[in-house]
Design a protein around this nucleic acid. Structure first.
Length: 467
RNA sequence: GAUGGUGUAGCUCAGUUGGUUAGAGCGCCAGAUUGUGGUUCUGGAGGUCGCGGGUUCGAGACCCGUCAUUGUCCCCA
């Protein structure tokens, strides 16, 4: 091996101690809220069989799956014809496993495999990385973490309402005071497609109108025309371009507009019921917006859909994309052989939340976990004297370490300074003789002598103050 | 899949119409200070200028190719 500059694959990142402190801060807040709402933890393997993953995220999704080369002789049984069929088709001869693409599908797989033992309705949360082989951009990575919470085994809209409540709590506990939770329902979108005479064209319709807030009315119409929607359909679609108004007004308009579509009517009813729950739970309705142009990409949603964006100073959404999204899916377990299990879930994107919080300056100071007490190392004798004390400090619950080499004190203190260790115990010949140790406060620079017991005593006090 | 930008010291970057020995700041190491960090001062180390080819008397700079990286579109967290 020649000398090579080390690197990591694009779209992936290392997380150093400072970043980890902040990321764990986010994870902890989300986990706490999930647990408070009765969700239980689940982890699934990094690798799933491709048969589990394929075909569940649309055609694009299949291409974004990371496929793992079969172990052993992966060319075994591969014919020249297979290779001639092109890399896309040949890939499935060479690979039968892939990296998980999201947490919902593995969860559905788990539910089906364990249906006999689970207590329904089953609530689980899952915090793990997922992988997507797409082109990285700002706020988009190839490896990123998702924090999912789902309920399966009930179609009660109370679950949707609880998701709305959890979004409020998570945002609140992270200090993201200003956010917008957009809600829509796939049945409404289906109803719209039926109403404008474009039933069956939901896919392209959703994709186009989802861009409304990004590219505007004209471009959306243009795209629809290109995708084969008739002028008549586009004319009937006009109500969707009305500016967002009060939720109540939107309801009334919708009811009117979609009166001829039973599916649409059901969507409106579901939304109305969800809104009643939201009111009964006393949630802040100002942050919730019914937005009939919200579509979301994942094809498996069948009912309510959610999306959360952070709002920055001046009421402008933070340009990082949505930080959370979710919805209801009725048929996810069906393709694994279990019918009639409806589920609804939410997912927070930690990486984007991190970027948002960084941009808005919402992280508390000094979350980095570090040593609280450093023992200096003068020589072998002092080292032997200090080792039992070091262990006592640790037993007392103090994050402590001893400098491993008997180098110059300057270097040891420099180390403490860089690592932001707040206290240093100096033990040399004088301290050993008298039993009076020198405790140096690195913040103030002050130094006092005291017996070791008193050092520990100090820390009890300081711990309460979160040194 | 389409399309822009950027690759020079550990990091962030400068480098004039192509012209001598490629620079700065920060960081690193040592000393001033043999038991005292953060400040200061002094000294020092560190570069196949992403890689390959071409133009030229001469290339970090210009041309071609290539790789890496970053952003945008599509799509998505």
């Amino acid at each position: 091996m020649t000398n090579q500059k080390p690197s990591i694959p694009r779209g992936t990142r290392d997380f150093g101690p400072d970043q980890m402190a902040r990321r764990n801060y986010i994870f902890d807040k989300i986990r706490t809220v999930y647990q408070r709402y009765g969700f239980q933890p689940l982890e699934t393997p990094t690798l799933e069989n491709l048969s589990v993953l394929m075909g569940r995220y649309g055609e694009e999704g299949d291409q974004l799956l990371y496929k793992v080369l079969n172990t052993g002789d992966f060319l075994n049984g591969v014919t020249p014809q297979d290779l001639e069929a092109g890399s896309k088709k040949a890939a499935y001869k060479l690979s039968e496993k892939g990296l998980r693409y999201d947490l919902t599908v593995p969860f559905a797989r788990y539910v089906v495999m364990n249906r006999g033992e689970l207590t329904f309705p089953f609530r689980r949360y899952q915090i793990q990385p997922v992988w997507r082989a797409d082109r990285p951009q700002k706020g988009r990575y190839r490896e990123f973490y998702q924090c999912d919470a789902d309920v399966v085994g009930t179609d009660s809209l109370l679950c949707e309402a609880e998701i709305v409540a959890m979004v409020h709590e998570v945002m609140g506990s992270l200090g993201i005071r200003d956010f917008c939770l957009k809600i829509n329902n796939r049945k409404i979108l289906t109803g719209i497609a039926e109403t404008i005479g474009a039933a069956g064209l939901e896919g392209p319709l959703f994709v186009a109108i989802d861009k409304l807030d990004k590219i505007g009315k004209e471009k959306v119409e243009e795209e629809l025309r290109e995708r084969g929607f008739s002028d008549n359909s586009i004319r009937k679609l006009q109500p969707i371009f009305r500016p967002l108004s009060s939720n109540r007004e939107m309801f009334e308009n919708l009811q009117d507009w979609l009166h001829a579509s039973p599916t649409g009517q059901r969507g409106v009813e579901e939304l109305a019921k969800l809104w009643r729950f939201i009111k009964q739970m006393g949630l802040n309705e100002k942050k919730i917006q019914l937005d009939i142009s919200l579509a979301r990409g994942l094809s498996y949603y069948t009912g309510a859909i959610f999306e959360v964006k952070a709002i920055g100073p001046g009421g402008v959404p933070v340009q990082i994309g949505s930080i959370s999204g979710g919805g209801r899916y009725d048929n996810l377990t069906e393709s694994f052989g279990l019918k009639g299990v409806s589920g609804v879930g939410i997912s927070f994107g930690v990486d984007r939340i991190y970027d948002v919080m960084e941009e808005l300056g919402l992280f508390p100071e000094n979350q980095t976990i570090t040593t609280k007490l450093l023992f200096t190392n003068f020589d072998a004798e002092a080292e032997a004297y200090a080792l039992p004390l070091l262990q006592r400090a640790r037993q007392a619950g103090i994050n402590a370490e001893m400098y491993p080499d008997a180098t110059k004190l300057k270097k040891q203190l420099d180390y403490a300074d860089r690592k932001r260790i707040p206290f240093v115990v100096l033990i040399g010949s004088e301290e050993m003789k008298s039993g009076q140790l020198s405790l140096k406060n690195m913040t103030t620079g002050e130094q006092e002598t005291m017996p070791f017991d008193e050092v520990l005593g100090r820390f009890e006090k300081f711990e309460g103050l979160k040194v």
